[in-house]
Every structure is written in structure tokens, then in C-alpha cells.
Design a binder for these strands. Sequence first.
RNA 1: GGUCGAUUCGUCUAGGGGUUAGGACGCAUCCCUUUCACGGAUGAAACACGGGUUCGAUUCCCGUAUCGACUACCA
Length: 512
Amino acid sequence: MNREVRVRFAPSPTGALHIGGVRTALYNYLFARKTGGKFLLRIEDTDQTRFVEGAEDYIKDALAWLGISPDESPWNPGTVGPYRQSERKPMYMQYALDLVEKGHAYYAFDTSEELEAMRQRLTAARVVSPQYNSITRTQMKNSLTLPEDEVKSRLESGEPYVIRVKIPRKEEVRLNDLIRGWVMVHSSTLDDKVLMKSDGMPTYHLANIVDDHLMGITHVIRGEEWLPSAPLHVLLYRYFGWEDTMPQFAHLPLLLKPDGNGKLSKRDADKHGFPVFPMDWKDPNTGDTAMGFKEQGYMPDAFLNFLAFLGWNPGDHRELFTLDELIEAFSIDRIGKSGTKFDINKAKWYNEQYLRAKSDEELAEFLLEDLEKEGIPVDKEKAAKIAHIMKERATFPSDLWKEGKFMFVAPTSFDESVVSKRWNNDAVAVLNAYKEKLSGYSEDLSPESAKSLLEEAAEINGIKLGKVMQAVRLAATGVGAGPDLMAVFSIIGKEELIQRIDYALNNLEVNS
RNA sequence: GGUCGAUUCGUCUAGGGGUUAGGACGCAUCCCUUUCACGGAUGAAACACGGGUUCGAUUCCCGUAUCGACUACCA
């Protein structure tokens, strides 16, 4: 039985797509591409009370930003649609009924108060885990305990009901997880989960089995939080008679908080000042905006590379992978088992690697954008030159402007520690001489000419250039560190440089 | 509490019955250099614990501990 691989990413539109979800989508995508299969996107919106406006668009946009493109989705449907569970609503009841007919499910009429009372009763009786199961269902109001005609009349009268799966009392359920190996669970620890809710919508458990079956899903790659309910899903496949086409399961390790323990959450993001969402997300209910990797300056290829390595590795020492290379190298058996703590430093490092690999022209585009916002007109050629000397020291594209601001704006204040250490009579003498040399120089300043003029200025004063270099930098940029100074001079130009030297000479005092 | 899962440097991880336990991020030192950064070199840094099995265990088995997930008419 060699079916075409079909995998799905099935988020629910209840808010921004979490980074863990993005990684799940990525692994599904990589697996599909690697195996020549299909990657589907299915929206799991069976809980109408949790629907959040804009969440679906967010999922779509976030995946698009990263280049994780579904082969089938609500926006480019294939032949097994619809791709939103809310739109598939009419399909589910017949399957639930089929299970009732086969004796694997039953109607239950208990109100939430009655359920609560049951739990309290069991807790009081010191039952360790109060649940609706093979024991307790005999004391509840359902089609197993009620007379047949009463069940019928309740159903006909329109009384609200749910359909629950009837979990056998004693049975060993086993499943062979692609990542974890054999997992065995005894049915006595499972409960009679609700399959159909009283609002006529299926729960996740029913919907995902029915849809995965109908959509021809061959592999279910999802988060570890689903592992405990996986045995239930196996049982459902069996009850439906779909065991021979049951997908294989792969439960991914969780993404953990960087410190301490627990699942990575938005709270951690705020605490540590890094994003957990791919893009900015404005909560329509609170109006709060949560920051995204995109807006923080992470580039999609870098972010993807970073994400792929959170729980997976290629088995060799390579670190930098394009999407195509990831596809080529990917395999499920190289996914780790244990939870992965989130380290934003690694994300930054990846971003730096990708930033440096970009051409000066590409980076100039980012810089030009920022400059336009600041109202500073600069031509492309100059922007590219600046990008060239700045990119080795930038983490984000926005650093080009932030760290290179002095290229456009003359300093009006000077780093005190550098002033006190380096601003001396020698520096003043050299700068005065340099100023004159510059004034007498008729051509455009190149890095080479800037340097030779400076060397001359030092020489006529009998001063070694190295001794005053820091002061020269200070005068021109206001700080003691930065990219190659002669390149900077060439870029800002002769006139600007003279003005800056003048300003420094007039405003800085030589300490004795 | 119960069920399930996990456990190699601070972090991400490779490895797997006999290794100087490898790499990456971060950190430190040195080199390069007009500074910072980049780059290069070097260094500190790990098999959770206890029992087995074995000539030999970090690796296999069993416990313990710790951490996590799940335990809804949420997904």
C-alpha cells in the first residue's frame, strides 16, 4: 500500500499563530515536499465561541511570509474540501450516528450541572480522576441507562444532547509513533469523550478523524500535547473501520520557556523581550499588539532555518540551510524526542548570517526605506556603500540605519569617555592640519585619498597616526567605535567632514 | 493525584557497549586591525541518580528523582 503522502496543518483560528504552530506547519511542509506529497491547510473552527476575527487571515499571511505554501487550503481548494470544519458541519453527524449504530457511541443528556455534580461526588469519594467512563456512565443520563422510548422522546422533543464515544472497560490500545516508538495505554484510563457537541458541531476528536480520513491524510505530524488523546483516535479509526488507512502519527516535542520550564507562552515573550509570533498580532478584543518576528527584523529565510533546528538536525555539522536544502535534508526520524528550550540568541545569530549573505543592493533597499521615513534623501549607490560597510555589524536590517545614523547626521554630542582619554593637543594639531589638507584637495574624497591626506597631516606634526586615530573618529562620528573610518569619510564627503572637524575643534576642550 | 512522555556542556544538539564524548549559540582569552564588529585560533563547560546485565555502561534493562504534556460539550 503505497499511497501518495498527504499531510495537513490544522490550526484553529483563535488568535495569532504561535511559533510552535509555525514549526509544526514547517515540518509538515518539509515532509510533504521531501516525499513528493501534498501539504494541506485545514481550519479547525469547530468551537464557535473561541472564534477570533482576523485569526484566519493571520495564519494565511504568516505562512505566506515564510513561503510555506499549502497545496490545498480554504483559498486554493483541492478536491476534498471544504477546508474549514465549520463548512463541513453537515458531514459529521452521519459518522457519529454510524458509531452509535455500531454500539461504539451513545447519546448523553446530562447537563453541565449534572456533570459537575458527578465530578464532585467522585472527588468526595476520593476517586483519583473523576471522568465519564465505563463505570460512571451507568449512573448518568444517557442512551445506555435510559429506556429506549425515553431516549427516543428526548431526542424528538429537541432536548439538547451530546454523543459520546463508548470506551471499552478493558483493552490495551497501542500505537507506533514515528518519533516515540510504541506507546501503550489501557482503555480504563481513557474517558468517554464527547464526539458531537450539543450545538451540532463535532469536537476535535471526531472532526480530525473524519476529516483526515476523507482528505486522505497519510501522516499526522502534530504537537506532543496530542499524545495523550492519540489512543482515543486509534480507537475511533478502528470503530469506523478505517484502520487499514489510518495515518501514521508523529508527535513533535514541545517548545519550552528559555528559563525554568513549561510551554513557551506569550508571557515569556513579553518577559524576555522577544516575539513568539511570526508577525505582529493585534488582538481585536483587547486592542493590544503582540510583536512578531517579522516586524522585529527577522528575515523569513533566517527565521525558517532557526525554526527547523528547534527539535530537528540534519545529523552533520551544517547549520545554514535554504528552504530547498531543508527539504532535501529533512526526515522525521531525525526529530528529537525531548522538549526544546527557546533561545533567542540563536535566532539572532541566524539572522546575522543571512544578513551578511545578502548583497549590498538588497540591504540598501532596507536602508532606503528607513531613510525615507526619516526624511533623508539618499541615492541607491550611496546606500549600497553604507550597507557594505555596515552589514558586518548588524543583526537586523534596521540596524543599518540605527547604527549608521552618523553617516547622515553630524554628531552634536561626543562620547565622554573617549573625549577624556583621546582628545589631546596632538589630536587638535592633526585635525587642524587635516582640515587644511582637505580644503586644498579639489577632487572627491576616496578612502585612499582620505587616508593619505590624514597621514600627511600627522606627519607634518611629527605625530604617529595611530595615536590620534580615535580622536579623529570621535570628531567625525561622536563615538569611539564604528566601521572603517576612511570609508566613512569617503561616503560623507569632504565638505561635511570639514564641518564636523570644525564643530569638534570648537566644542571640545582638551583636558590637562 | 492519575495516564503518557522526556532527561548528553548554560542553551540547541551529534554519538552510542571500549571515544581525548564531537559541533553550534553564548561566554573567556589571544591574533588580525585606526576602534568596534567581522574573521581566525584557543579555552572553560555535559552523559540526572541508584541498582542490575556485561570483562567493560553515558549507551541496554529496572527503579528513583526532576521536568513536561494531558486529565472540558477547547483545540
